[in-house]
Nucleic acid binder design. Structure first.
Lengths: 212, 212
DNA sequence: TGATTTGACATACGGCACGTATGTCGCAAT
DNA sequence: ATTGCGACATACGTGCCGTATGTCAAATCA
């Protein structure tokens, strides 16, 4: 079963459209991205677009699905590299902050996505990032590491804080320095979820682990 | 100096446009709101609009400024009603969550605003909500109540978490129940900023203070 | 193998909405 | 009283989205 020459070429044009849309949405923004120009740049016409994705929002959905999957993979990798479940959770949050520094993710997933498609937790099939964090939190609660709050609520808050922080960092004049501040503040906030509070470092003892 | 009949009528049309836009943006969304229909509903034409606000985004800016001011006033009132500086800070955050339940604020300030105008911290003259929170955090740090993190970073994270939580609550099937979970999780997170951790309630001891 | 059908994609069309350029009318200052 | 300015209306061009229709190659089948 060789997938058929027909279906293969079709997948190719789908991928080409998504790839082109990803670039166009990222640099122009969703609203300002023209479907005529977008499809022409992909060597196609609007006919192909409406055939495969229904309308403009369908294409945005497809693009976001793809990016979302990539984000989950990277965040999970960061979590699994950590030395304890709790540090893995924190690393996951920090990974989201750093991921959201990419203009592509900022513009498409954080700004235009919610505005066009509505609340991310309602995106059908996806919002994989949120589910990933929710499961992590749930496991930490069951292990007695995190206080018994609602896992989904904690995940939403953590994700919201991380992504909003990234928005702030990216718009800052000195992204590197601001990123360090954001990560430090994020660690503080996250520690509020711990069942047994960590030892408090004395004032002025700044955390300097910025690199991955 | 009686402000002149001229200027008075002009202020009146400005206000009428902003009021109508606020309603239209809230129910249709920014992109789907037609300026023709919007101005007609206000008893005017697009000429008035472009004379006063330059373009469509200018009108959005004016609307957001107005809402932002109202939000700050309410959050500050909630803070000042509290019995201690720390509880005031928490009350401010909870107030943001509850404020963001209004569809008007959701749609205009949280969804369309960032998508059209970019990062809120760059909105000229405003983002009064963020500044308010930043100053509150700074005062708490100087009083030794909050750990010495970057005040602006903490404010961004707290605000992002609160507003994102509200987005989640509003989209939920059971807003009342979900709101309680969100507020409880928010209190946990916020406690991570404390210099001296609060006493940990035993598991199952749920906070029930939902009403203002 | 040749006819037929299916479906991926292109082309053509209508309509809406934004921004600008131009016109008009009333208030205010001299 | 005249003149100038500013608030707002009207008219126009342009771009873009969604749909309806057409076309041609590939898969199916007799």
């Amino acid at each position: 079963m060789t997938t058929g020459r027909r279906a293969q070429k079709m997948e190719e044009t789908r991928a080409k459209l998504i790839r082109t849309a990803r670039a166009a949405f990222a640099e122009k923004g969703y609203a300002a991205a023209s479907m005529d120009e977008l499809t022409a740049r992909a060597g196609l016409t609007r006919g192909a677009l409406y055939h495969h994705f229904g309308d403009k929002t369908g294409l945005l959905r497809a693009v976001i699905d793809q990016i979302d999957a990539e984000m989950v993979a990277k965040a999970r990798a960061a979590r699994d590299r950590a030395e304890s479940p709790w540090l893995g959770f924190v690393a996951e949050g920090v990974a989201y902050i750093e991921l959201a520094l990419e203009p592509e993710i900022q513009r498409i997933v954080l700004l235009d996505g919610p505005a066009v498609l509505g609340d991310p937790s309602r995106w059908p099939g996806q919002n994989a990032c949120l589910r990933e964090t929710t499961e992590t939190v749930q496991a930490l609660i069951e292990a007695g590491i995190v206080r018994p709050v609602d896992a989904e609520a904690a995940a939403r808050l953590i994700n919201g804080a991380a992504l909003d922080a990234a928005l702030w960092v990216a718009a800052a004049a000195e992204p590197r320095a601001v990123l360090a501040k954001a990560i430090e503040a994020f660690r503080c906030l996250a520690s509020g979820l711990l069942a047994a509070p960590p030892p408090q470092p004395p004032p002025g003892d700044h955390v300097t682990a910025i690199e991955n």
